[in-house]
């Protein structure tokens, strides 16, 4: 309990890291529910890896002396976010365009993208030994220290993502559930797809910068899956998944801090435990009915 009170104190040394991971835990499942409902779970694996490749690429450029934005640590971080956004955005555009053509195996493309992005992440780092430590800790899910300014910027962006996810929930639901119906109702399916994918891209890019690709994949998939059996409608699914994500992040941080374990894997294990408990409870509830 002492450790719990310690991390809750405002002057806790890692309070930015705690707030950052909990906010990512709350927000990621809000876009993750659409991965589950659209049966695009593999996107959730590949895109964080692509995002990590973008960050790795930005570090490599800095290693080669390309410092268009990068002058101090904060600027390096901004360049890395830019790399993540660029790579994730291009990957989403590519996957969405190929899916719209409807040809070939979608899973195969995503698998190839994941493999290429994973390899690129490592190679980009190999070409820039200076960024290796930071990048490797990011890939393992070690929380990169967040400055006050970065935390506020993240809160602002994730605030917009959260507001958009709820404000445009009907459109996102309609184009995900029945695209043909959306067209007959005069909705621009392409526009709403782009809007949804933009939220996904921003969330993944910022999230990967904060907690790494492993944790982001976990947050995109595990809380929505744990919430799904209990949800009655898209709003309850979103709220429940978000709550499970946020609480998993907090519990994971607490366990990680109190037992000196790496944060990322602990958060994923906690979220996995939530999925397991949810499944068991649902099974029990089904037997009683």
């Amino acid at each position: 309990m002492e450790k719990l009170f310690e991390i809750l104190r405002p002057d806790f040394l890692l309070h930015h890291a705690l707030y950052g991971s909990v906010v990512v835990g709350f927000v990621c499942p809000l876009v993750g529910v659409y991965f589950i409902l659209r049966r695009l779970v593999f996107w959730g694996v590949a895109l964080p890896q692509v995002s990590a490749a973008g960050i790795s690429f930005a570090f490599m450029l800095q290693g080669f002396g390309w410092t268009a934005f990068a002058g101090n640590e904060a600027d390096e971080r901004h360049l890395a976010i830019l790399g993540a956004l660029l790579f994730t955005g291009l990957a989403i555009l590519l996957l969405a365009a190929l899916d719209r053509r409807g040809k070939g195996a979608s899973e195969g493309r995503i698998g190839a993208l994941y493999a290429a992005a994973g390899a690129a992440s490592i190679l980009f780092v190999a070409w820039n030994a200076a960024g290796e430590t930071e990048m490797m800790s990011l890939l393992k899910g070690e929380l990169v220290s967040l400055s006050e300014e970065d935390l506020h910027a993240m809160l602002n962006v994730f605030g917009v993502v959260t507001a958009s996810a709820f404000l445009f929930q009907r459109e996102f639901l309609l184009v995900s559930y029945d695209r043909d119906m959306a067209v007959t109702l005069g909705r621009n399916v392409l526009l709403w797809d782009v809007a949804l994918y933009s939220l996904v891209g921003v969330t993944i890019s910022l999230g990967v910068m904060t907690v790494g690709p492993l944790v982001i994949f976990g947050f995109l998939v595990l809380p929505p899956m744990a919430a799904l059996p209990w949800a009655r409608g898209i709003t309850s699914l979103s709220l429940l998944a978000s709550a499970i994500g946020g609480l998993s992040a907090f519990a994971g941080f607490f366990v990680s801090y109190s037992h000196d374990l790496p944060l990322g894997p602990v958060i994923v294990v906690v979220a996995s435990a939530a999925l397991l408990v949810s499944g068991l409870l649902h099974e029990l509830a089904g037997r009683r009915r």
């Binding site: 589950i36 409902l37 559930y177 029945d178 043909d180 949800a231 409608g233 898209i234």
Partner: peptide
């Protein structure tokens, strides 16, 4: 054509 994975009521 409509995917049963969506947790929607008939009203929804």
């Amino acid at each position: 054509r409509l995917d049963p994975i969506f947790p929607l009521s008939a009203y929804d």
